[in-house]
Nucleic acid binder design. Structure first.
Length: 503
RNA sequence: GCCGUCUUAGCUCACUUGGUAGAGCGCCAGAUUGUGGCUCUGGAGGUAGCUGGUUCGAAACCAGCAGACGGUACCA
């Protein structure tokens, strides 16, 4: 906008409301910085473990994304989809796993196997947004395709733990195996899909509702505080008792988290009659051995039979990462972030394309959610994770005639590796100083009439003034103090600026 | 999807039973011809979410819709 721009109202009567779509958020520099750092740290860990980078397209054909085929009436439930010119349905990816399965199936012949890749980027889900839950968010995934070894699962777990560690994020990874859950359901004689789903959903709510809530959901149902009634799975008392003892196997005598070995022993008793359950225990046992070798501590990764994850494609081990950091919003209310990452084994996903079973396992790191958690955590405490973004050095624009000189000086400073800009507004000196202050600029460079005449520049270290500002209440004194301000020969300017910027 | 609460200036919120909108913060300017903070003074900024209804008159009452928030469900 320039001074001469006519009022836009003269062009049109329609004035759209300036707002981002529901569930989509703008990210300012400090938020972007957090996300970039998270991604960089996690990528490094993934590469150290031998995973190669892969980027796939944002859109996939809808059939490649799996069960979320848009139906004619409601093409946009769950995913964002649209119909291409040739009438084929395309949809924005909702995670990185389905695109990987497509890529692996498409390139299987030529890939080194097992194929290990990591990927990061936004994913989109068309659903109701909530706190810490947007319709566009960033994930960073690592997956191993083409091996059924439980050690591959263990390595993914170690990788996830290392990723959180690299970012100094206090988390715990909870591990379970779908085969245990399936074995439990089979031994209980629960074979209708609807009832199975009901039982699994009930188990999944252990952390939030406790044993009592789970018990209600397994039986007749449960009424929550809002008066909403959730229908139960309708199990009989004996079956409910069996499920509860299965879930309780994750706890030690005092109600805390039991050690990995102890959990397996308890589960072995509960699942004694189930072949599939025994197979799951065998997998977990090998994972446990591998985790010990990988140096993953009990406090970092534990077995928790109540972990279920999504109901669709997991076939074996499942993992879920929980953030242990306390976060509060601006009003001081506790914010619960829930899962900040998860994954598991999905042995049937590639087979959708090729007909041939290709075992795979992976983990997804919830970058956006973690970044949001860090930003909140830092607004209260000072973890050092969130740094305010510093502005550039600002060259004050005094006169129209000298703009060329300002740009010449800016180029010299830039060549020395420092960020700098010439003030391009039309405001006076005071406003320019204010501008530099708000950008958190380290310094201002003044090349006015006096300096031009004398071959000098005046440089003002803004941080020194920021420190002094609180101590001086009198304006005259403040202005005369000219904190951190020096006038020196132009040849010395760049070295002085360097010393200010580099502290 | 379901239940509940809410929607007035950029932000946070007022406006005693319906009579034509205000504060704090922020922003801009001046006090301070080339100097950020503090202080003081002045100024800009509002179709009261939208649409319709009741009324002489609606920000206020009613209805529908939209959006926000909270809970619940779902979460690949």
């Amino acid at each position: 906008m320039t001074e001469n721009a006519p009022n836009t109202a003269e062009f049109t009567d329609f004035r759209p409301e300036a707002r981002a779509p529901r569930g989509f958020a703008d990210k300012r520099a400090s938020q972007i910085a957090i996300e970039r750092k998270l991604i960089a740290n996690v990528s490094k860990v993934y590469e150290d473990f031998g995973f190669e980078a892969l980027q796939t397209s944002a859109f996939e054909y809808a059939d490649a994304l799996g069960k979320f085929l848009p139906d004619a009436d409601r093409p946009n439930v769950g995913v964002f989809s649209l119909q291409d010119d040739d009438d084929q349905w395309m949809a924005l990816r909702y995670d990185h796993t389905a695109p990987l399965a497509r890529f692996a199936a498409q390139n299987w012949e030529t890939l080194p196997k097992p194929f290990r890749r990591y990927a990061f980027g936004p994913v989109w889900r068309n659903e109701k947004p909530g706190p810490g839950r947007l319709r566009e968010f960033m994930q960073c995934d690592a997956d191993t395709v083409g091996t059924d070894r439980p050690e591959a699962d263990a390595e993914i777990i170690a990788l996830a733990v290392a990723g959180f560690k690299a970012n100094a994020l206090p988390t715990v990874l909870r591990i379970n195996n779908r085969k245990l859950l399936n074995g439990l359901l089979a031994s209980l004689g629960v074979d209708s899909a609807g009832q199975q789903m009901g039982v699994l959903r009930a188990i999944d709510k252990l952390d939030r509702l406790g044993l009592e809530g789970v018990q209600l959901l397994l039986g007749g149902g449960r009424k929550d505080e809002s008066g909403d009634f959730t229908k139960g799975a309708g199990l009989n008392d004996a079956a409910i008792a069996a499920v509860l003892s299965f879930v309780a196997a994750g706890r030690d005598a005092s109600g805390g988290q039991a050690e990995r070995g102890a959990v397996l022993d308890k589960l072995a008793a509960v699942l004694a009659n189930s072949p599939e359950g025994q197979a799951g225990l065998e997998d977990l046992s090998r994972i446990s051995t591998a985790l010990a070798g990988l140096g993953v501590a009990e406090s970092e990764a534990l077995f928790d039979p109540s972990i279920v994850r999504g109901l669709e494609y997991y076939t074996g081990a499942v993992f879920e990462a929980e953030l242990l950091m306390e976060t509060r919003d601006e009003k001081g209310n506790l914010v619960k972030f829930g899962s900040v990452g998860g994954g598991g084994r999905y042995d049937d996903l590639v087979a959708r394309f090729t007909g041939e079973r290709v075992p795979a396992t992976g983990f997804s790191f919830g970058v956006s959610r973690l970044a949001a958690a860090l930003a909140l955590a830092d607004s209260g405490a000072e973890t050092g994770a969130v740094q305010p973004v510093r502005g550039p050095i600002v060259i004050i624009a005094f006169s129209e005639a000298d703009m060329g000189e300002y740009f010449k000086l800016a180029a010299d400073i830039r060549a020395a590796g420092l960020a700098v800009e010439v003030y391009l507004g039309r405001s006076g000196m005071k406003a320019q100083m204010k501008y530099a202050d708000r950008r958190l600029s380290p310094a201002v460079v003044m090349l006015g009439g006096d300096e031009m005449a004398n071959g000098t520049v005046t440089i003002k270290d803004l941080d020194q003034g920021r420190e002094l500002a609180g101590k001086i209440s009198d304006n005259k004194e403040w202005r005369e103090a000219r904190p951190g301000q020096v006038t020196l020969p132009r040849a010395e300017a760049i070295n002085h600026l360097k010393s200010i910027v580099n502290g």
